[in-house]
Write a protein that binds this DNA or RNA. Structure first.
Lengths: 197, 197, 197, 197
DNA sequence: GATGAATGAGGTTTCATTCAT
DNA sequence: GATGAATGAAACCTCATTCAT
């Protein structure tokens, strides 16, 4: 993590900007982007609303930064996870587990925002994020293609990935981390959707 | 359909209220509830914004009506589809196809609204819709339990349903009805997620 | 005047929009456009600030309307004055008197705004007003050219008009209508700048 | 010029304060005082906005300094020009040429500011500048009275000066220094307004 | 002298809702 | 039922100014 901060991939969560982004992710998820006022955001990190605009030029800019950091971070984390996986099954499981961690763990709020607040981005911000998202998605498509070549996947990677995107992102609405099921178990269950046993 | 209208399950789409609900669903999906103004809604059906309030007491009331009608209609449609299915596999396939039709067909906009605008409902409206949703969900759980009893499903119905909810609702973001894949093919693919062949 | 209102050249000063334009001209002159808040404007005509935006889409729109109405009205008044003048000297005097009345009379505030707040208009509004201004200016150039042809003017109409524009518009800063000098006397003095005796 | 700097009449244009005043004059003319932010000013001379306040106590103070320096400088320049003129006609021409140089030359921006931003000064600053302005204006009135005594001027000096003030200051809006007409020619034309040939 | 984060009052504008006609 | 002017609270954002470093 320190390395990712040093590389500029993500903002130091201890800095003013970092705390702002974390608060924004939390509030945007809880209340929605539109219903979250800049005063809410400022109050959450203990500054005045006008002071926000020293860090970001507009409210939309904050949304964009939340999304961008999230996708950058998760792409980096997925790359690391993939390096440690051995076989196709392991790779797909690694991706599932990684994405679930993104969705259900510390960055979960930001991931939700990425899904639910897309329409609130201006078109050019959307373009920018889409490019980053393509890189992320390519990691998935490569791993699924490998599994398919090994005869482990019944349907086209392209379609399967889309089903998985929906299934995994939806977990944010029902999975309770402190319930009976561990996140690893959840990942194994999800794997059964994708891969024939 | 006429029967459902006659029974009061849904509003006549030709009536002023019906056209308003359809417009609201469309605009709420496109722009989001918060970004859609009552002026937008009024303009869409050719009246002045003040006149909206002769039909609904508030903007939130319109959102609630969109959601309620959608869930009522789809529950009714699912009941009909279930009656025509024979075996467990057929029932699950019928539910998948039915839900996909809801999501991707004429009522798709309203279904999206149901998912994306949940937070914009007041708590008591949420309670009301949740009850209707429980009825709908029970139809799913019953069918999946039957398939599980027949040894066709690897994981618990409760969990599987949640995965399917996400996977199917997400199709609204990528499936193109006028592309290569028919909706029936899409349903078959989705079935492979749920049921062992 | 009633006819100009009926023709749509200017807004009825009794209507809400008309009273708003008059108040805007007065305040914009007194305090400047930037220092005049929409709350000031609204208070001046006894409505709430939000209600302004039923009449005009933005503050800049109000400025533009003030300018446009002023120039339209004064062009119309100058046409009428010209019709009643006989010879070149009479025409130039008519124009001078007419412009002084615009500057120092009831529409004086709006004329000042036209001069002093030009930079506050957006470029496309400027374009729009410039076209109207060209029509107005042509009336002047024609009359001065006639006087020049009659040997009454020492310098080019183009240059003379510009000198006069400045000299006449500046009167707003010093001439007191209730002082010793009548407006007609002032006009005669100004005529001595332009025309050899 | 060096002498005027040494005497403290104007600020050294090479100093930080001097560059700030020049930048302020330029920006205030281009955009208006209200629309020019202290950030604009600071950026123009390459410092941070907070640092401005080491040089001037407030933004209004900068405006006041621009105006004061301009009027002091131009009063001094007019005195010098007058000394070199022989007869009444020469004196009036010298004043016209001098004022045109102020308006159209290097200090033109500041002269514009003096005219257009008057309302943005606080009343006590206005008082202060008015006193300086009176000294400047007296030079004009004396010269015109002399010409009048010589039978060269048709109307009262007081009125004529006001007409000239407007006519000359307006040149900033139309005269192009790099066009066909030289500044000396322009001054001669202006003289025809004032003095019988 | 300079910095730049922070302030906080105040700016324009939006918008759901009301109500006399 | 419909209109549309008006409301008024609240939204985002700006900006001159301060001050610890």
């Amino acid at each position: 993590m320190e390395q990712l901060i040093a590389e500029g991939v993500i903002t130091d969560p201890g800095s003013a900007r970092g705390r702002l982004l974390a608060a924004a992710a939390r509030l945007f998820k809880q209340q929605g982007y539109e219903r979250t006022t800049v005063r809410d955001l400022a109050a959450e990190i203990g500054i005045q609303s006008g002071s926000l605009f020293h860090h970001y030029r507009s409210k939309e800019d904050i949304l964009r930064a939340v999304m961008e950091e999230t996708i950058q971070l998760n792409t980096a984390l997925m790359r690391i996870a993939l390096q440690q996986a051995q076989d196709p099954r392991g790779k797909v499981l690694a991706l599932i587990r990684c994405e679930l961690q993104s969705i259900l763990g510390e960055t979960g709020e930001a991931m939700s925002v990425l899904v639910y607040e897309w329409r609130s981005l201006k078109p050019d911000s959307q373009q920018h994020i889409l490019k980053l998202r393509d890189i992320y998605e390519q990691l998935w498509l490569d791993a699924l293609a490998e599994a398919r070549a090994a005869g482990m996947v019944a349907i086209e990677p392209f379609i399967l990935r889309r089903f998985l995107t929906g299934a995994l992102s939806w977990t944010t609405n029902w999975y309770k981390p402190d319930g009976d099921m561990t996140l690893d178990e959840l990942a194994e269950y999800a794997l059964t959707l994708a891969i024939k046993q």
